[in-house]
């Protein structure tokens, strides 16, 4: 008798639970539907389409459309100009990231000494970060002006250095853009590093001091290891953002600079797609770019497993 009762009760409970689950499911679907629709139409379908396009000859201007298989990929991978563009991008990343890292870490360390005026300095350093990249690029075009009137050459002149062609010189166009990029982004990484430094508990330093560690040893043995997750994050974002760099380059050197010295991957993609309207081919380039970013992220992750210390 008791057993039957129990059975009935649990069956009833079971139905209740099922109903609850079903209600939860439909409520969830209702709540998720706006984002799911946007993601589907504007992210998932475009990815599938991009892959399909990358296998096609698809020129918007000539309305010429046909399946060409991997030809678009082969076109880029056997094209010396693609490698020049890739090299330009790597150049940007390889110069920008270490420069940025050293300066921002150095400044964050200086600011972290419980200094008077910390928030004042931080405020100032952050101004380029929040201002418009296009406006900033505009003023730097003017600063780099090689004719008289250019501030950059005037400053060089004060140190007795002869004037440079800056954005008009194939050797200097890229360094000029890197300089602007470092200048623009400094404040951001300083804030990130400062937050990381302030999270390191004082006891570690006290312990190190008791063991007789000097300032350098404290930095080397305490600060750097405990900061490594942040450093890893900054480097990873630096690499990803370097491969996506576009605005300052497009504004300062719209055609990719003298002798294409500033044509980076993203600008090349933009030109192929929206100047020449070669949508099929450009889609292949987009996938190559994506693959490069994924590979770098993977490599970085495996390197970091060995070198990043979590508390």
């Amino acid at each position: 008798m008791i057993g039957v009762m129990n059975g009935k009760k649990s069956a009833k409970f079971h139905i209740f639970k099922n109903k609850n689950i079903r209600r939860n499911f439909w409520d969830s679907m209702l709540f998720l539907s706006p984002s799911l629709v946007v993601f589907t139409v504007f992210i998932f379908i475009p990815i599938a389409m991009a892959f399909y396009l990358s296998l096609m000859k698809w020129d918007l201007l000539t309305a010429d459309r046909q399946f060409v298989g991997l030809k678009n990929y082969i076109y880029y991978l056997t094209n010396p100009f693609f490698y020049k563009v890739l090299l330009n991008t790597v150049y940007f990343a390889a110069a920008h990231i270490p420069l940025d890292l050293i300066i921002t870490l150095g400044l964050a360390l200086l600011l972290n000494q419980k200094l008077k005026g910390l928030s004042f300095y931080r405020t100032i350093y952050f101004i380029p970060v929040i201002s418009s990249m296009v406006a900033v690029s505009a003023v730097w075009i003017w600063i780099y002006e090689p004719e008289s009137g250019g501030l950059a050459n005037y400053v060089l002149g004060l140190f007795g250095i002869s004037p440079l062609g800056w954005l008009h010189d194939p050797h200097w166009a890229m360094p000029a853009i890197i300089l602007v990029s470092v200048w623009k982004g400094l404040g951001y990484n300083i804030v990130i590093f400062l937050a990381g430094l302030q999270n390191i508990p004082d006891i570690y330093y006290e312990a190190a001091r008791i063991d007789g560690a000097n300032a350098w040893q404290q930095f080397r043995r305490v600060t750097l290891p405990l900061l490594s997750p942040i450093t890893y994050f900054v480097i990873l974002m630096g690499i990803i953002n370097s491969f996506k760099v576009f605005t300052q380059i497009e504004v300062m050197t719209p055609e990719g600079g003298p002798l294409n010295s500033t044509t980076v991957l993203n600008l090349y993609l933009y030109q192929e797609a929206f100047h020449k309207y070669r949508f099929g081919r450009a889609s292949a380039l987009a996938f190559i770019m994506f693959a490069i970013i994924l590979i770098i992220t993977k490599i970085q992750r495996s390197v970091s497993h060995k070198n990043v210390h979590y508390e």
Partner: peptide
């Protein structure tokens, strides 16, 4: 997924 990958479609 970077915007660049999907921008053409």
């Amino acid at each position: 997924i970077p915007v660049q990958v999907t921008i053409i479609p």
